[in-house]
Amino acid sequence: MPDVHDENDPRPLPPPGSGHFDYAGNQGLLVEQDTLLEPDPAKREEARSLWGDAWRDLRRRPIFLISAALIVLLLIIAIFPGLFTNANPRQSDLVHNYLRKPDWTDFFGAGWFGYDGQGRSIYARVLYGARASITVGLTVTLAVTLLGGLAGMLAGYFGGWADAVLSRIVDIFFGIPLLLGALVLLNAFTVRTVWTVAFALAFLGWTQIARVMRGAVLTVKQADYVVAGKALGAGTSRLMLRHILPNAIAPVIVVATIALGGYITAEATLSFLGIGLQDPTISWGVDISSAQKVIRTASFVLFFPAAALSLTVLAFIMLGDAVRDALDPKLR
């Protein structure tokens, strides 16, 4: 085949004498020269792939840059909260600090965001609370995306019995309200940590992703390009990973990033109900729930942990949006 290509090359030959390999206008050499003197620019360009292109595109998207910067900042806060404040989040001073209003002149000081009902620095608590909230949010989201994605992919791809069994399991889990189920489940644990809460939420939450994934896979599976891959002899893993997954992942990314915020709030709700994280643990959820008691007298106590939660959710939703768009070549 390559031989045919050279003979029928539609590109015009350079005029005789234009190259330094021209021996008396020999035709054969001229053809040789054509490739020697004018190397196709595309031939030296790197071969590209979807993920490489997506990354190249992401780096130029302001939304991605902003959300990524926010997430990096949040992660640094979660890992090293002590870098940002000297205040101790557990130190109470009811005499001087009971529900003291924010002091805006004290930038990054202990009283910057005010003090809560126990006389503790809200600024320090927001910083130290990031670890528990982000851990729960990220762990649960990762777990449900992997578990739900896998279940949805298997159910959608194989159909038949696999689909029937998996879909019924999904239906059963779907019938259990997330909070009620988590209440029952967490009651079984005597000590409740970030990980038990994350486990309970992931255990009950994966069905949502599984449904979305199954639906997307069912649509994509019908596409001619999947049949084409099959006709070429592609194996199941190649069809799933190269053809179906990239085309079915977009709705999953959207649902997962929105759900991430939901899981952080679910953790907050569970804490509020007294079944999630307990008071020595610092989390935005614990603080939001305890702030509700004083919302009329001191709304700032609720405002700061709630704002931190919203900002985190926003950052992840923006990231999800940017990644989804970057993975669709049509939107680039």
Partner: peptide, 29 residues
């Protein structure tokens, strides 16, 4: 034997480059 499909709009994976689409047979074989 190879198949050429009816609808060129659905027979090419929208998330693969042309190089990957045409090169896929070589990856499989």
């Amino acid at each position: 034997s190879r198949l050429v499909f009816q609808d060129p709009y659905t027979s090419l994976n929208p998330r693969m480059t042309v190089g990957d689409i045409i090169g896929e047979p070589y990856e499989i074989h």
